[in-house]
């Protein structure tokens, strides 16, 4: 989370109603998000500086692998875009199907109040990621996921910004992890819209992915 003070407490307490452990990675927030999350009962890991969402996710995975013996981990955005009930259903699905990773898909579910330009952009991003990874997802860059311990160990994310979502998909392809999707409902509230990414950020993601590819294969 990064500067999600107004909502994170509520998100954490909602989660704690269903899940026994909530770990919040505070990505160098300046607005007391860490204290709010801690007060709500989450375990809080604090980056001393802001690094980006990908880096925060990796910190969460590292914590899970090094300090717990959990079998599954849920990744859940701190801004309240997702429903706890969706997360719970995805965990049930993960146990039932024993796939390595369950990915949330807003296109199988409902999306409330998504701006039109964002919908067009996400459609283009989806086509791109299908082509690149060869995985026939129905959604991309959805932050709600359930990973098994071994899947989390495969991640080792190097993209610290938003491109990590594509990176996760390429890890799934590279390590031939088994996966399935689950419909999720997204709440694009005024809060998340005001906090959310600019559409132009898609260009940054493309650039990050392209240059990383050069660096990795050469």
């Amino acid at each position: 989370m990064y500067n999600e003070g107004p909502v994170v407490g509520e998100v954490v307490s909602e989660l704690l109603g269903t899940f026994p452990h909530v770990v919040c990675v505070d990505d160098g927030s300046k607005d007391g998000s860490a204290a709010a999350a801690r007060a709500a009962g989450a375990k809080v890991l604090s980056h001393p500086i802001n690094l980006g969402q990908g880096a925060a996710l990796q910190t969460g995975f590292d914590y899970m692998l090094a300090r717990t013996d959990a079998t599954h981990v849920v990744t859940f955005d701190a801004d309240g875009q997702y429903l706890v009930s969706d997360a719970a259903a995805m965990v049930t699905k993960a146990f039932a199907t024993s796939v390595d990773i369950v990915l949330g898909s807003r296109n199988l579910g409902q999306t409330e109040g998504q701006p039109f330009t964002r919908r067009v952009l996400m459609a283009a991003a989806l086509r791109f990621s299908r082509t690149v990874t060869g995985i026939e997802l129905t959604d991309t860059h959805n932050g709600l996921r359930v990973l098994t311990r071994s899947a989390a160990a495969q991640m080792n994310l190097r993209q610290f910004g938003m491109a990590h979502a594509s990176e996760i998909e390429s890890r799934v392809a590279a390590a031939s992890l088994t996966w399935c999707e689950h419909p999720v409902t997204m709440r694009y509230s005024d809060y998340s819209r005001s906090k959310g990414q600019s559409n132009l950020n898609a260009l940054n993601i493309l650039f990050d992915l392209a240059t990383d590819r050069l660096g990795a294969t050469a």
Binding site: L45, H47, P48, I49, A55, Q58, T59, D62, Y63
Partner: peptide, 8 residues
């Protein structure tokens, strides 16, 4: 930063 966060 990650190591620091875990240590903290």
């Amino acid at each position: 930063a990650r190591a620091q966060a875990l240590l903290d």
